[in-house]
Simulated scan of single mutants.
Amino acid sequence: MTALAFPRTDAPRRTSDDERARILQNPGFGSSFTDHMAVARWTSESGWGGDGIVPFGPLTLSPASAVLHYAQEVFEGLKAFRHADGSIWSFRPEKNAERLQRSARRLALPELDTESFLASVRELVAADVDWVPDPAGEQSLYLRPFMYASEEFLGVRAALTVDYCVIASPAGSYFPRGVQPLVVWVTDTYARAGAGGTGAAKCGGNYASSLVGKQEAAEHGADEVMFLDSSTHTAIEELSGMNVFAVTDDGRLLTPRLTGSILEGVTRASILRLATDRGLEPVEERLELARVLEDVRAGRIREMFACGTAAVITPIGEFRTKDGTWTVGDGGSGEHTMALRELLTGIQYGRVEDRHGWLTRLV
C-alpha cells in the first residue's frame, strides 16, 4: 500500500504562548496535551485512509463500539527529543512501528505499515513543534500512538472498522520523586500475563491486569510491583510497565529471557546493545526469584534497575515480599545503572555520538 501522508488541518484555537510556557516549566507526565493529533481509519472494505493531522479533541465513540466491550486495542509509547541546535529527533521509532504491528497481529487488528507510522509521528511533531521542551531536566515530548476497534456492534469477532490516533504530551520525570531508587513489592498473588496470552503485545488489558498488583504494592509501602511467571510463580518477569535488569559482581548484565509473556521493550533491547560499551556481558535467561534474592543478599548481585520509554532507566534499591526485605547493594543508585542511563539519554539528546544509527530526525 502507499504510505499515508497525514495532511494538516490547523487547530483554529491554539494554546497561548504563555500557557504553553507555564505547562512546560513543570509538565509532569501525561497530564497536558498538545493542540493536534494524528488520525486514520481502516475498514475491511477500503483498507487505511482518512489520515490527517487534526485539532486535538474528544473522539466520537458509540456506546456499542467494540473496544468498549471486547478490549480490542493496542498502543505504543515513544518520545521526541529536542537537541541543543533546536532539531528534534526520535529514538528507534521504527522499532515502535514494528512492535505495534506485532501487537495488532496478536489482537486481530490491521497492521499499519512502518512508513505510515513514522509519517504520523513526524507530521504531528511538526504541527506542535513548539510543545517539544528544551532538554533541561531530561524533558521531552511523549508520543502515544494507539489503535482501537471502533465498529459499532456487539459480537465476539474482529472488528471491521478500526481507528488509529497519535496524541502528544510534554513529559518530565515518570516518577514524582525523579530518578531515585525504587522500592519494589514482589507479588505472588497476581500475574501480569500467562503463556499463550497477550503478554508480549502492548495492549491495555495487560496494564489493566497490573493495577491491582500496584495497589497491593502501595499497601506495602512500595513504589512498584514485580510480577512472576503465571505457572509457577517462581521466575521474575517484569514490573507493571518496565523490564528488569541485574548487574552481578562478575560483570554480567542479567535480564529475563523473552518467553512470550514479557513485553519486548525498545529500551530493553537498546540496553543489551549498550552493555558491552560498559564492559558488561549481557545475559538473557530465566531468573528464579529465590536465586536472585539470595544473590542480592550475598552481594553477588550488586545493582538492579527497571527500564522503559517513560521511566528510561530507574534504579531498584529494595525488594519486599511477604517473607522479608532485601536491599540491593547499598540501596542507592548503582554505578553501572547510572552510567547506562547517562549513555542512553546522551544518545537520545544528541550529547553522545549515535554509533548505532538509532536516531531519526523528525524536524
Results as ranks from 00 to 15, higher is better:
283 V>S: 11
219 E>L: 09
283 V>Y: 12
184 V>Q: 04
104 A>N: 06
291 R>T: 15
184 V>E: 02
323 D>E: 07
164 Y>T: 15
189 T>R: 10
58 P>N: 08
193 A>S: 06
25 Q>L: 15
77 G>L: 01
32 S>C: 13
94 E>L: 05
322 K>W: 05
199 G>P: 02
211 L>K: 07
278 R>L: 15
129 V>Q: 14
181 P>C: 07
15 T>Y: 00
317 G>C: 06
363 V>H: 12
283 V>Q: 13
341 R>K: 12
137 G>Y: 15
355 R>H: 02
127 A>K: 00
22 R>A: 14
360 T>N: 10
360 T>M: 08
47 G>R: 03
81 F>W: 00
316 I>R: 01
2 T>L: 06
160 L>N: 04
326 W>Q: 02
300 R>S: 12
144 R>H: 12
4 L>F: 12
27 P>W: 07
24 L>K: 11
23 I>A: 09
31 S>L: 01
42 W>C: 14
93 P>C: 05
288 E>F: 15
152 E>Y: 08
342 E>Q: 11
324 G>K: 06
360 T>A: 07
234 T>P: 11
169 S>H: 13
148 Y>F: 14
363 V>W: 09
180 Q>H: 06
350 G>R: 07
7 P>M: 04
199 G>D: 05
312 V>E: 14
74 V>A: 09
66 A>D: 12
1 M>A: 08
204 G>A: 14
311 A>T: 10
57 G>E: 04
237 E>L: 04
246 A>K: 00
338 M>P: 08
113 D>K: 01
334 G>K: 06
154 L>D: 08
2 T>M: 06
157 R>F: 01
317 G>P: 07
137 G>L: 13
129 V>S: 15
216 E>D: 12
176 P>M: 04
37 M>P: 09
